[in-house]
Amino acid sequence: MPELTARAAPPLAHHFVDMRQQTEAARLGMWLFLASEVLLFTGLFTAYSIYRYLYAGVFEEASRKGVELWAGTTNTFVLITSSLTVALAIHFARLGRGKLAAALLGVSLLLGCAFLGIKAIEYANHFHEGQLPGKFYTFAEVQGPGASMFFTLYFIMTGLHGLHVIAGMTVLAVMAVRAWREEFGPEHYAPIEIAGLYWHLVDLIWIFLYPLLYLI
């Protein structure tokens, strides 16, 4: 492996034959994990579809009166941008510019914090207005069957997504430290790449949550 002379040889686990096999395995493993994550959310999307179908009018009304469009839209831009910075971080990590990659990951982390901050403001508003799931629902403006169901789904879906954001931020933070230490290069960037995949999935799910909860 001649091109690796500049930095320490990347760690190759004993049971793999070469780096390529190890990278492919890691990547495929991550994609399989992402597939299972997609199906985890599918349970919720199915519940959403059914209840939206049954209570279409109430859901639209609840979405209009119950959630803040500006917050959802801002958060969409925030997450898209954070995805860009993560993609760029991987790009520069591959080029061996670890410090720049770490800085970009730092920006992504800040954007992640911004996302959670806006979400927290929204949650506080919902608590204040009584727009809460199930038996806690006291929002007077939207009544009728399915009204509390919208907020049940809203809280479970955004809550689970929020947990994924936190998990993703943890992983990105670890990668930022490793990038800062110049651990990645043209031959060894699989860890930061699969961490990025996870963050992009978080973005992907939000891309669907945004129209379903805020727009329609």
């Binding site: 492919e24 990547r27 994609w31 997609v38 995805s83 860009l84 990025g196 973005d203």
Partner: peptide, 23 residues
């Protein structure tokens, strides 16, 4: 996002297959 940020555009078929299957 999937094709470019997540590099499905460039990567081997099996990853695409996994993702497509989940969909």
């Amino acid at each position: 996002v999937a094709l470019f940020f997540m590099h499905l555009w460039d990567q081997p078929g099996v990853n695409r297959l996994v993702f497509a299957t989940s969909l």
